[in-house]
Design a protein around this nucleic acid. Structure first.
Length: 489
RNA sequence: GCCCCGGUGGUGUAGCCCGGUCAAUCAUACUGGCCUUUCGAGCCAGCGACGCGGGUUCGAAUCCCGCCCGGGGCACCA
């Protein structure tokens, strides 16, 4: 038992204030403007796991308050991604459905003199702000502000002509937190709610209102939000609210994961990438396609924890974790890359062989590998890369079948049967009668072609398999031509 | 330029708040061995780190100061 406790402590340290709060509420709040990647799922997984650990609530909230970059297909893609990861949410919100809520709080702040509608030109406002000064709008009465606000809503101002600002400390050491904007005017129709609204809340406002209204107790987010927290605290103070516990973590990088959501969307448009799940990407869709298992990603993220240090993950680490999980259940198959034919003479009577689908798990069942045999001659395909290393007289074993001795090399290898008994010689995977052509898409987007056992045609895909002596892969389709996506060795 | 944060083995982390039990945890990688009809998995052993300099203290990875290095923010994006 102490073991378990220790393990748990390592993976999931106790949350601050978990004891005093009756219930824990966390949330994952993605912007539906692009595909989820490793960095996003860090927030999602941590939030989810903690909610579950404390029997709390996990909320999914789409932060789509910028009509200009919302991509309608992303709402569902993100949900699919989360489901695949095994994350379940108790409540779901979409910010573009909640404008009235935000408006109510805006009006309350205006009437209490804690916010104002600013019509200054941005540059002018900024230089004033940087010097610690207030613009004329700040001194307006609540009544005047309400009037301006109504004019904003009515459409009397164009985009950029008016903005609602939250009053802060004009002398705050960081100019970036002073008098931050909470609402702006956007004329672009929103993909979900169309032209119903033209005044949109900005991130810091919508997040603050929602986190409080939804009872969020713990927030997980990247440290790039540190300044935002300072800004939001002014709003919480105005409204007399208590700020949730915020847990920040550093940047998570991995080779291939450099691309921003916008850059990915662009590259896909231009055809430079095959899609959001292009194997060269570190999007969740790509990781899934490459055969990474949800439990692998969860484990990796949980091991990372929530430290402020920036961490750079290596693919090797990801592979190692995944190998461990995949090995337990992946069906074994023979795949022969870049095949060369081998003719084996003097073979005794041979039947098609029945092989275990998994070396140590009998429940995985068996499969038949057919053999092309005429009289005492049998034909197989083996990897050329192995064959070139042999010389005449070498003995090798066709794995799980028989030993052969190499007689002649050429465009076709000629060999002779050398017994069934297990020998301490190289064991080579092979295919024979009925073998199917298959492509394996590699992580660098190149393709390796080869032959695979005919049983592939009857598999239910997608399926994670291990091609013996080649590596783990995810079979993506079995017809017309089977395609697998390589995961790792 | 201004504001903020961080630096533990090759990599990722635990420990740092509340100094001693830390000749520093765990994982991964790597090396060697065992096992195995895969170059996969498993088992065993080994390897290897507190950014630098000062200070406080009987004692510092842990506290203080300086330096160096790295990251983030300074959007009417999220």
């Amino acid at each position: 038992m102490p073991e378990t406790a220790k393990e748990e402590k390592r993976g999931l340290p106790e949350l601050p204030r978990a004891e005093e709060l009756k219930s824990i509420v966390t949330r994952f709040a993605p912007n539906p403007n692009g595909p989820l990647h490793l960095g996003h799922i860090r927030a999602a997984i941590l939030s989810h796991e903690y909610a579950r650990k404390y029997n709390g609530k996990f909320i999914l909230r789409f932060e789509d308050t910028n009509p200009e970059n919302v991509r309608p297909e992303m709402y569902d893609l993100i949900k699919q991604d989360l489901r695949w990861l095994g994350l379940s949410w108790d409540e779901e919100y979409v910010q573009s459905d909640r404008l009235n809520v935000y408006y109510d709080f805006a009006e309350r702040l205006l009437s209490e003199g804690k916010a104002y509608v600013c019509t200054c030109a941005v540059e002018q406002f900024r230089s004033l702000r940087d010097r610690g000064g207030a613009c004329a709008c700040r001194g307006l009465s609540p009544a005047e502000n309400m009037q301006r606000w109504n004019r904003m809503l009515a459409g009397d101002y164009k985009a950029g002509e008016a903005v609602l600002r939250i009053k802060t400390d004009l002398k705050h050491p960081n100019p970036a937190v002073r008098e931050w904007p909470a609402f702006r005017i956007v004329e672009t129709p929103h993909p979900r709610v169309g032209s119903k609204y033209r005044v949109w809340p900005l991130y810091n406002f919508a997040v603050s209102i929602d986190d409080h209204e939804m009872g969020v107790t713990h927030i997980f987010r990247g440290k790039e939000h540190e300044v935002n927290e300072e800004r939001q605290r002014f709003l919480y103070a105005h409204l007399g609210w208590e700020y949730p516990v915020a847990i920040q973590y550093g940047r998570l990088s991995i080779p291939g994961g450099e691309l921003s959501k916008t850059a990915i969307v662009e590259a896909v448009k231009k055809g430079e990438l095959s899609g959001y799940n292009d194997v060269r990407l570190a999007t969740l869709a790509a990781l899934r396609r490459r055969g990474f298992l949800p439990e692998t990603l969860k484990k990796v993220i949980m091991d990372l924890g929530a430290t402020l240090v920036d961490s750079s993950l290596s693919w090797e680490t990801l592979y190692a974790y995944n190998r461990k999980f995949a090995d337990l259940k992946a069906m074994r198959l023979f795949f022969v890359p870049d095949p060369i034919e081998i003719l084996v003479r003097k073979t005794p009577s041979l039947n098609d062989v029945r092989l275990r689908n998994h070396p140590s798990n009998p429940e995985a069942g068996e499969r038949i590998v057919p053999i092309d045999r005429r009289g005492s001659e049998a034909r197989f395909w083996i990897p050329k890369a192995d064959a070139v290393k042999w010389k005449e007289g070498d003995i090798v074993r066709l794995k799980d079948l028989m030993n052969v001795v190499i007689k002649r090399k050429g465009v076709r290898i000629e060999a002779e049967f050398f017994g069934f008994g297990l020998l301490d010689v190289p064991k080579i995977q092979w295919v024979s009668r009925g073998a199917l052509e298959m492509d394996v898409l590699m992580p660098d987007a190149t393709t390796i072609s080869g032959l695979v056992e005919p049983t592939v045609a009857s598999l239910t895909v997608p399926l994670i398999v291990q091609f013996e002596r080649f590596g783990f892969a995810r079979i993506e389709r079995v017809s017309p031509k089977p395609l697998a996506v390589f995961a790792h060795t």
